[in-house]
């Protein structure tokens, strides 16, 4: 089936089996490799993207549900010239080690900050449940708090 949606701000249309997980459409049809395959079972969070602003595990999201939706991946979060506050904070604290899980964490964090602009440690603990095997959690927590500050000051400027 044909599915149309907005991807990182651009109108996009794909032709695929309607049950194909969004993850594979992003990675292999649209060649956006930043969204990762970690488990394919919506358990690890490496494939997290945003659909209409909500953090979604793209491995368990059939492409047919994407019709008319606004989808954002790590490639659309920010770029080197204009990093998203979450990406800036991640660089400030040098969070990534192997880096594989990081796009999923950043997408989940960015989605959280839209709804909880100033998350407490408890908010972070309960909402950010992706898996990082390298154990970057301790830096990530600091980076999330920094990202919240950056995000707020950015919003104030708007």
């Amino acid at each position: 089936m044909k599915v149309s949606f907005t991807l990182n701000g651009a109108p996009t249309e794909v032709e695929t089996d309607e049950q194909t997980p969004l993850l594979w459409v992003l990675r292999d049809q649209l060649d956006l490799k930043g969204t990762k395959f970690g488990c394919g079972k919506a358990a690890c969070g490496a494939c997290t993207v945003q659909v209409d602003g909500t953090a979604i595990r793209s491995c368990s999201y059939a492409i047919k549900f994407a019709e008319g939706k606004n989808i954002r991946t790590i490639e659309g979060l920010g770029n080197r010239d204009n990093p998203h506050p979450v990406q800036q904070a991640w660089m400030d604290f040098v969070v990534p080690q192997c880096g594989y899980c990081q796009p999923g964490f950043m997408m989940a964090t960015a989605a959280l900050l839209e709804k909880v602009p100033k998350p407490t440690d408890e908010d972070i603990d309960r909402n950010i449940v992706n898996v990082c095997r390298c154990g970057t959690y301790t830096r990530m927590r600091k980076a999330i708090h920094r990202a919240a500050e950056l995000h707020q000051s950015q919003n104030l400027k708007k």
């Binding site: 919506a42 953090a55 595990r57 368990s60 964090t109 959280l112 709804k115 909880v116 908010d123 909402n127």
Partner: peptide
Amino acid sequence: EGLTCNTC
């Protein structure tokens, strides 16, 4: 907020 049922 950041981990809705619909996340998965």
